[in-house]
Structures are given as structure tokens and as C-alpha cells.
């Protein structure tokens, strides 16, 4: 069986909000090390990989592997019934057909319980290759989100160029073109505003901005985001969690 407790329901609410627009139904695999999810979005452009280590829970118990086949939007609907600071418990018996969620306020004078029906989902898993990326950029998650939102007014695609001078985002559409360039920098007072670039060779890739905008909904999970790119390969975009991560593998646009 699975029994996992979080001190604040907001932790799971934010994670689910970060993936719900891309994923429909998917399996969450639970074992003694924690919860994991790997799923393609409906268009197969983004692969979402979520890891929630058992250390990230205030209490965690899972003696035997459990697969939770869930509709992510149904999970989001139920989670909306929890207050952000409620204590959240997830429970599922071995081979059960439901996930039980309880929400308690800190004084434990209100307890809500919801049972979510589980589904048998025949899901494809892909092998994510171990890769040394040509360029790695760590930057503010909010700044990345803002930059992409601005450029989406111009075009449906963004080109990202990374070289030793910095990272450049550009877009071109019917009304004209625009770009934002960030130089590597260290902000001693607000470390999350630093821009750190590690590079073995310059890279330029283009991406669909609508999907990118869905990815950056994870910005509430972490102050920084790690963007990794290699020419002609999907980008890896990672938001770190206290114990785990949400990673997106994002297929680029390729010149014909």
C-alpha cells in the first residue's frame, strides 16, 4: 500500500497545475523511493518526467510497487478542494481501484476525504538517453516565463541561441520582430536573478511558444530553471523540487 503525507497541499497543487495542461491520463508509479511519472503530451512534442522523492514527504510508506492510473484533470479538480496549507495524505491499498486523498487543517478539526477512481492505463514508456548537453543555462524561472510571454505576442515560435556572450531569445512574425539578450551575470543579493551559462559549443534551436508557455507554468515550483540544449535534440527544461524535479523534454522545430 501507499501512504504519503505532505505538510502543505499547495506542494502537490502546484505540481499538478504545472503538468495538467499537457497530460490527460497517466500512470504514477510509486515505490519505496517515491513517486514518479513519465508521460508524453497529447501531441508527443513534450515528454514530462516528474520525480517526487520519499524525502519530500513528511511521512512516506510504500512497501510494494503501486501504479496509480489517474486522470490528471480529475486529480486537479479534487485538489482544488484543499486549502493551500492543509495537510494532505495520499492513500491507496494494494491493487485498489481508488486513491484516497484527505485534507486536514492544522488544528485537525476539519478533515475532508475524497476517493478518486483509478484507471488501467496502457502507457508507452520511452528511454531518455543519458546526454552531455552542449549548453546549460540556469536562470530565473520568472524571467524565462516573462520573456517567452512577451515574444508570443509576435510569433508562434521562439529561437533560442546560446553562446559564450549569453542567451538570446528571438521571434519574428507579421508585425515585426523582437529579441531579448541576457548576458551571464552573478547577482549576489538575489541569487535567483543570476544567469549562469556552461557551454561546450554554441547552440541555436527553435520551439513552439504555446508549448513553451505550458512548460513555464512550473515557474511557481522553483525560483530558477535549468535549460539544457544540444543542436538537433530535444531541450531539457528542469524545475528542481525540494526532493525531486519536474523535467520537460521539448522537441524542437527542425528546418526541412
Amino acid at each position: 500500500m501507499l501512504e504519503a503525507k505532505l505538510d502543505a497541499a499547495s506542494q502537490l497543487k502546484k505540481i499538478v497545475e504545472a503538468i495538467r495542461d499537457m497530460l490527460g491520463e497517466c500512470n504514477i508509479e510509486c515505490n519505496e523511493t517515491g513517486l514518479a511519472l513519465q508521460s508524453l503530451d497529447k501531441s508527443h512534442i513534450v515528454l514530462v518526467s516528474l520525480l517526487l522523492g520519499s524525502d519530500g514527504f513528511s511521512e512516506y510508506r510504500c512497501d510494494r510497487g503501486v501504479t496509480l492510473g489517474l486522470n490528471i484533470n480529475s486529480l486537479a479538480t479534487v485538489l482544488r478542494c484543499a486549502n493551500n496549507d492543509d495537510i494532505l495524505t495520499l492513500r491507496s491499498e494494494d491493487r485498489a481501484n481508488e486513491l484516497i486523498l484527505t485534507f486536514e487543517d492544522s488544528k485537525a478539526d476539519r478533515i475532508s476525504e475524497f476517493n478518486l477512481r483509478l484507471m488501467d492505463i496502457d502507457q508507452e514508456y520511452l528511454a531518455i538517453p543519458e546526454t552531455e548537453y552542449a549548453a546549460t543555462v540556469v536562470m530565473s524561472a520568472a524571467v524565462l516565463q516573462r520573456t517567452l510571454r512577451d515574444l508570443s505576442a509576435l510569433s508562434e515560435a521562439v529561437t533560442i541561441e546560446i553562446d559564450k556572450e549569453g542567451i538570446r531569445f528571438s521571434a519574428e512574425g507579421d508585425l515585426g520582430k523582437g529579441s531579448t539578450h541576457f548576458k551571464p551575470c552573478v547577482d549576489m543579493e538575489n541569487a535567483e536573478n543570476s544567469i549562469n551559462i556552461t557551454l561546450s559549443e554554441p547552440v541555436s534551436l527553435s520551439f513552439n511558444l504555446q508549448y513553451f508557455s505550458n512548460i513555464t507554468k512550473a515557474s511557481s515550483l522553483s525560483s530558477t530553471v535549468t535549460l539544457q540544449m544540444t543542436a538537433g535534440m530535444p531541450a531539457q527544461i528542469e524545475y528542481k523540487l525540494p526532493s525531486g524535479h519536474v523535467r520537460y523534454y521539448f522537441a524542437p522545430k527542425i528546418e526541412d
Binding site: 508527443h44 527553435s206 524542437p252 527542425i254 526541412d256
Partner: peptide
């Protein structure tokens, strides 16, 4: 012209 690729073109089933 650029066309959108899919993840399946890069990552294979194990």
C-alpha cells in the same frame, strides 16, 4: 521552413 518534430523521433522505447 521549420517543421515541428516529435519526441518519438529522438527517444525510443527501451
Amino acid at each position: 521552413r521549420a517543421s515541428q518534430s516529435t519526441i518519438g523521433a529522438f527517444f525510443k522505447k527501451p
